[in-house]
Amino acid sequence: MGAIRLEKVKKTFGTLDVIPGVDLDINDGEFVVFVGPSGCGKSTLLRLIAGLEDVTDGKILINGVDVANEAPAKRGLSMVFQSYALYPHMTVYNNIAFGLKMAGESKAVIDEKVQNAAKILNLTDYLERRPGALSGGQRQRVAIGRAIVRNPAAFLFDEPLSNLDAALRVNMRLEITGLHQELKTTMIYVTHDQVEAMTMADKIVVLQAGRVEQVGKPMDLYNNPANKFVAGFIGSPKMNFIGGDYAKKHDCHEIGIRPEHVAVSTESGDLPATVKIAEHLGAETYLHVNAGGFGPMTVRATGEVPLGEHDKIWLTPEQDRIHRFDANGIALGKL
C-alpha cells in the first residue's frame, strides 16, 4: 500500500521560496512523474517526500499518516538516485543487502530477498562484483535492486536515467515501466525529459518555479494543456506560438499549434513560408521555416519530404488542433 498525499507542502531556503505550497494526491500503485525544467523544484519536492529535507510547513501523508517530521528510514520509502549512489566499497550483494541488514533481518531472509531481486534484474552473475566493475546500466539495476528488497510503500526515482547514453536510456525506460507493471507499487519519478514523462507516467505533474502547473494523464496534458508553459513543455518538437492578427482571428492573444498539426503543401494553404533548414530523419522530416509575418516555426511532416533550403511552401494549421491563450498565457479552450 502506498497512497501519498501532500497538503500545503512548503519549503523555503532562507528567504527563498523553493516550494511555495503544493497540494497533491498520489494513489496507491500509480506511476507519477514530476517533470519540469531544471530548478523548478521537482527534485526538492521528491527529497521532501523522502525526508532528506525538512518541510518548512505542511503535511506529508503516507497511507493517511503524517510523516513530515519522521526520519527518512521510518517512512518506508526507497529511493534511486541520479548518481546511483552505490556503496563503492561493497559488493553488489552487500549493496542490495545493506538496507535489510540495517533493519536487522536474518541472514536467510536477506539472502532470499537479494537473490530474488537479482533474478528479477538479471544481476545474479554480478553479485560478487564491486560497483566500479559494472557498466552504467548494471549500476542502475543495482540501485533499483537496493530499492526493491525493502518492499517500500513507494519508490522514488531522482532522474535515474540522465547518466546513461541514449540507447541504454530507452532500454531502462522500458525496464522500469515493466517493473512497475510487475510490482504494482507506487512510483514517483523525477525527470526533466518530457519524453520519459509521456512514455512512463500514469499521471504527470508539471512543475515550474515550485508551483504545480498542471496534473493529468499524459494525453490530457498533450491535448489540453492548461497554459502556455505546459503546452510548450510537453511535446517535441515544441509547440509553435503565433500572436498578432492570426491570433485575433481566433479571438485570443496568442495561439499555439504543434508542429505535427500543420499540413504542408507546395501549392496552397493559409500561410506562406520559406524553408530555412530541413532535418530529414527518414520516418519524418522537421522543417524549420520562416513563416512571413509570423516569424520562425517548426513543422513536422511524415515520411520523406523532398524539400530543402529556400523552398517556398504553404502551411495550414489544423483548426481543431489550435490552442488559444489569453494575455497571461492561460488556455482558453478550443474554438
Binding site: 531556503f13 525526508g51 532528506l52 529535507e53 525538512d54 526520519a71
Partner: peptide, 8 residues
C-alpha cells in the same frame, strides 16, 4: 541535506 536534526 538540511534537516533540523542534521544541523543540530
Amino acid at each position: 541535506m538540511s534537516t533540523r536534526s542534521s544541523t543540530l
